[in-house]
Design a protein around this nucleic acid. Structure first.
Length: 221
DNA sequence: GCCAACGTTGGC
DNA sequence: GCCAACGTTGGC
């Protein structure tokens, strides 16, 4: 049971307005990175369909309502079948990206809010979006009092550990490439990791994915 | 632990 | 529907 993006657990009154799919988030944000993006982009139809992802989780202990939200790649690896559900996402954009995920797609496991943030490894999507049960669990950090059983707001996917990166790819290094690519037009120039830093589930274009993957065979920058 | 960036809420 | 206040994310 992967925690990850912490959620607002407390009160929150009527968030509803946008619990469905239209969602707030989408409204003013620009569409995802690369491929065409219609002028407005309504996320339910985030047309460019992505096939690679980056998902953030915290590998170091941190307590939220007395519950440790720690869940690093080693924790995923330690689960039965090295598989777990990516629950606790409480951001509409992130949720909508999860809903676009397809069986068999690859996602980077990113370590956030820790000593050394960066990409730790790779996992596979092994079950497409379904209801995140933690939204109904009063004892869960991610409980959402506004979500109704007959119209659940939040989804999750199942992920399976695939492998560690041949070497850890620190955010600091990725950022250097990002800055460099912004000047040269390289593959990471629009990477969501920097242009939408707070998004806990992000898409990668094929070019972004290939470039990041190639870094594990390079010397640290 | 600080705090900038930014998503969300809710008054108007 | 705007936007100020508030709360969270997550790097540093």
């Amino acid at each position: 049971m992967p925690p990850k993006t912490r959620a607002r657990v407390s009160k929150r009154t009527a968030s509803s307005g946008k619990d469905d799919d239209g969602e707030a988030a989408g409204g003013k944000r620009k569409a995802a990175a690369a491929p065409a993006e219609s002028a407005k982009n309504k996320e339910s139809s985030e047309c460019p369909q992505f096939c690679h992802w980056l998902m953030k989780s915290e590998p170091e202990s941190r307590f939220e309502n007395d519950i440790d939200v720690k869940f690093g790649i080693e924790d995923l690896k330690a689960l039965p079948d090295q598989t777990g559900c990516w629950d606790g996402v409480r951001n509409y954009q992130a949720r909508n990206f999860m809903r676009q995920m397809k069986d068999g797609q690859l996602a980077f496991f990113y370590h956030s809010n820790c000593k050394e943030p960066g990409i730790a490894g790779l996992m596979t999507i092994v079950k497409e979006a379904y209801v995140d049960h933690t939204q109904f669990d009063k004892n869960d950090v991610h409980f959402d009092a506004n979500s109704k059983a007959d119209n659940p707001k939040w989804s999750m996917v199942d992920v399976q550990y695939q492998r560690m990166m041949k070497r850890f790819l620190p955010l600091s290094e990725l950022k250097k490439y990002h800055l460099q690519h912004r000047a040269t037009g390289g593959p990471l120039k629009d990477a969501a990791l920097f242009t939408r830093a707070r998004l806990s589930v992000q898409p990668l274009t094929p070019e972004e994915f290939d470039f990041v993957l190639s870094l594990e065979d390079e010397e640290p920058l």
